[in-house]
Simulated assay, not measured.
Amino acid sequence: MMATQTKRLTYRSLAAGNRVKLAGTFTSSGNMMLMLALVLLLAGLSTKAMAFADQDHDGVPDYKDACPDTPKGLAVHANGCSETPLSTLCLPDSQGQSYPPKCATTEPLAVYFPSDSSHLPQSQWPVLAQIAAFLRTYPAVSLYLVGHTDNQGNKLQNQPLSYRRAELIRTALINDYQIDPVRLKIQAKAASQPAASNQHAHGRSLNRRVAFIVQQRHLADNRQGGQ
């Protein structure tokens, strides 16, 4: 009788970090296919385990969730907020006032960038989710996306850099949150409007930003509509 050959397959579970050993006797191609199917099943389970965290289980990963405490069972938009608008932001408008008008104080909001970069860190995505929720709450409002830099480099470098930063935010709001492109206007200010001192590293980090300003000419429609 011919000796039966035993082959051992090894699969590392990405989720648990443990080594799973599968041993068996393969006397036909059918047995081999069965073992391969089991390995693929385990791989699929590990992939799910590596998905982004979603603490309120609404299907939107936390880093993009503007409403991280949504009650269980509510239908939500792509930004993680329920279909009933929930935004309570008070943004500055182009006349230096607050919007909506009932706000007592404005809440200037910005996304921040690394030095000499138009790449948006993952940590800044929740701000975009808040802006998307604001735009859904006030559907007649349009925004200026105002790009800024610190004072490192010269204007020939900083002007296009500030534009690219604002353009990146506009693209993300359109593609990831389905905001109408007509509602998003770009302004590039380079280093001309610092939010903090450029004399130290922390101040420069606050100046590398895109800020959000409500367009004044769209406010009358919202006031008339009772928004």
Score class of each variant (00 low, 15 high):
84 T>M: 11
103 C>P: 00
146 V>M: 14
117 S>Y: 01
115 S>D: 07
67 C>T: 02
127 V>H: 07
128 L>R: 08
103 C>A: 06
129 A>L: 09
132 A>E: 08
135 L>Q: 13
149 T>P: 07
128 L>Q: 06
128 L>E: 03
99 Y>V: 04
94 S>G: 13
90 C>V: 03
88 T>Q: 14
134 F>M: 10
133 A>V: 10
101 P>G: 02
129 A>E: 05
121 P>V: 02
129 A>S: 13
78 A>K: 12
140 A>W: 12
83 E>M: 14
96 G>Q: 05
110 A>E: 01
128 L>P: 04
79 N>M: 04
125 W>H: 12
68 P>K: 08
89 L>Q: 03
85 P>M: 09
75 A>V: 08
111 V>S: 05
143 L>M: 14
80 G>N: 01
71 P>A: 04
139 P>K: 14
122 Q>N: 08
138 Y>L: 10
69 D>H: 12
85 P>E: 04
148 H>F: 11
119 H>V: 14
134 F>E: 01
136 R>I: 03
139 P>E: 11
117 S>L: 02
88 T>F: 07
82 S>Y: 03
140 A>Q: 15
97 Q>E: 13
86 L>V: 15
86 L>H: 14
125 W>G: 00
125 W>A: 05
149 T>F: 09
122 Q>H: 07
134 F>S: 05
127 V>N: 09
112 Y>C: 03
94 S>K: 13
137 T>I: 09
76 V>D: 04
81 C>K: 05
67 C>Y: 02
145 L>D: 04
120 L>H: 01
137 T>Q: 15
72 K>G: 03
135 L>P: 07
136 R>G: 12
138 Y>W: 14
89 L>E: 02
75 A>W: 05
122 Q>P: 00
110 A>T: 01
118 S>Y: 05
123 S>V: 09
107 E>K: 14
126 P>M: 12
109 L>C: 07
69 D>C: 01
101 P>E: 06
74 L>C: 00
135 L>M: 15
